[in-house]
Write a protein that binds this DNA or RNA. Structure first.
Length: 418
RNA sequence: GGAGGGAUGACUGAGUGGCCGAAAGUGCUCGCCUGCUAAGCGAGUAGGGGGUGUAAAGCCUCCUCGAGGGUUCAAAUCCCUCUCCCUCCGCCA
């Protein structure tokens, strides 16, 4: 959630919001609603002050004065009760509007939409050739992915992952998790079913509600990323400054309805309803969050680069940022069969946007401040496999295991089935 | 799933209708003191919102004792619902 005070008083803050895609007039509506709310608040508080004072006097009053004073206090109570609903309505209205307002884009974020991200660097070179089979055909040929049976069992975009592909998954998890522990991350296997308030406070409801699977009879929701439960880990906490940064590496299965993606990426396991992912989530002091963001990016680059995948780093444009992100980097990897770069990982700095709803704060010399939260993909397994299926595929159809994974797979080469 | 007990500030813990935003202790901050020390002495120390203020400070005010609702002139305290924790019984990967 945004800072209404800053929206009211800081031009740059407002400008950062306007650089994202915001409905015309929304910001003025929020400000007007907030003005109305504060006016009512002043009025109601004045009445409450009178009522409190009147009540206090009754306690000290002599028995014979009491009945008169109680009657007077009762009248004040009624006057107050007449105005309170208006204030409550105003608060609901401000909140509903404020929730629609995205986090301002950082000044370093380029102008524009989806295709206007700024390519910061290109690392590694596509060799210009495509493998004999694209990732989907290869995975089927190697008997690693069975999408047909997956669809029979659970519907489209579900698949069975099998054989060496599963060993590759666990090798990836082992290798990446080891790296993250080296970098000071605490590994976490979080709950993947959460309550509604967790979804709300993590910023996924109401905006992305249609992307989330729910279990109505238990009033629980399946998470689409471990970012959700990790953000709830310090809900309402007032943290000591010397505990920050808190770095967590969440491993979870993730569930996404992928509403609105009909017909997109329909082959293989590029886009599926269920996948496993290692996610980085960091709580940082406000003055350290930009540095922490660069750190997360560097880790992502070392993972993607370590797998030998050619990639580029994109500074995502304002119009393409999600609502909570002030800035975001994507790592896009070359996908030979499509002849273009596709997103593999990303990392965002939410600044204090998410922490405001979570009420996660840090005690500093000056007082208390909202923490900054950041998140980044360490390794999204299915999609990583997609890229490996093409880049590690050799002309004879065998699969060359990336060197960094060899210690965890116990084999270097996988031959196609006879 | 059944029965009972509990949730208070950074932490421990007192408080069963007004004198309580809250005793005491711990911790922390500042000062003093002992030749040194994890010792002693003194003072301060909850969070959040609104208003005022050029800003900081200050001042006024409201809200918050797990969450939400209710009773009452008045609620940490009484009632209801929910969440969580503990103990016992049952069941179980």
């Amino acid at each position: 959630m945004i800072d209404l005070k800053r929206l009211r008083g800081e031009h740059a803050y407002r400008r950062g919001i306007e650089r994202k895609r915001v409905r015309d007039g929304l910001l003025d509506e929020v400000l007007a609603a907030d003005d109305a709310r504060r006016e009512l608040l002043t009025e109601v508080e004045e009445l409450r002050a009178q009522q409190n004072a009147a009540s206090k006097e009754i306690g000290k009053a002599s028995p014979e004065d009491r009945s008169v004073k109680i009657a007077a206090a009762g009248a004040l109570k009624e006057a107050l009760a007449a105005r309170e609903p208006a204030l409550a309505d105003a608060e609901v209205r401000v909140r509903a509007l404020a929730l629609q307002v995205p986090n301002p884009a950082d000044v370093s974020v380029p102008e524009g939409g989806e295709d206007e991200g700024e390519v910061l660097r290109v690392v590694g070179k596509p060799n210009g050739e495509s493998p004999a089979l694209d990732h989907a055909a290869y995975a089927t040929a190697m008997r690693w992915v069975d999408g047909e049976r997956g669809a029979e069992a659970s519907g489209s975009r579900f698949a069975y992952l099998m054989g060496e592909a599963v060993l590759l998954e666990f090798a990836l998890v082992q290798w990446v998790l080891g790296r993250l522990v080296e970098e000071g991350f605490t590994p976490v296997v979080p709950p993947v079913l959460v309550r509604e308030h967790v979804m709300e406070e993590a910023g996924f409801f109401p905006t992305d509600r249609n992307q989330v699977y729910d279990l109505p009879s238990d009033e629980l929701f399946l998470v689409g990323t471990s970012e959700v439960p990790l953000s709830a880990l310090h809900r309402g906490d007032l943290l000591a400054a010397d505990r920050l940064p808190l770095r967590y590496a969440g491993w979870s299965t993730n569930f996404r309805r992928e509403a609105g993606t009909y017909g997109k990426d329909t082959t293989g396991i590029f886009r599926v309803h269920q996948f496993d992912k290692l996610e980085m989530f960091v709580y940082a002091t406000p003055d350290a969050s930009d540095e922490e963001h660069e750190r997360i990016l560097a880790i992502e680059e070392s993972i993607v680069g370590g797998l030998g995948l050619p990639y580029r780093v994109v500074n995502i444009a304002a119009g393409d940022l999600g609502a909570p992100a002030a800035r975001k980097y994507d790592l896009e990897v070359w996908l030979p069969s499509e002849g273009r770069y596709r997103e593999l990982t990303s990392c965002s700095n939410y600044r204090e946007f998410s922490a405001r709803r979570l009420r996660t704060r840090v005690r500093t010399e000056g007082g208390t401040e909202l923490v900054h939260t950041l998140n980044g993909t360490a390794c999204a397994i299915s999609r990583t496999l997609v890229f490996l299926f093409e880049h590690c595929q050799r002309p004879d159809g065998s699969f060359a295991v990336p060197e960094v994974l060899m210690p965890f797979t116990g084999f270097n080469l996988i031959r196609p089935p006879a």
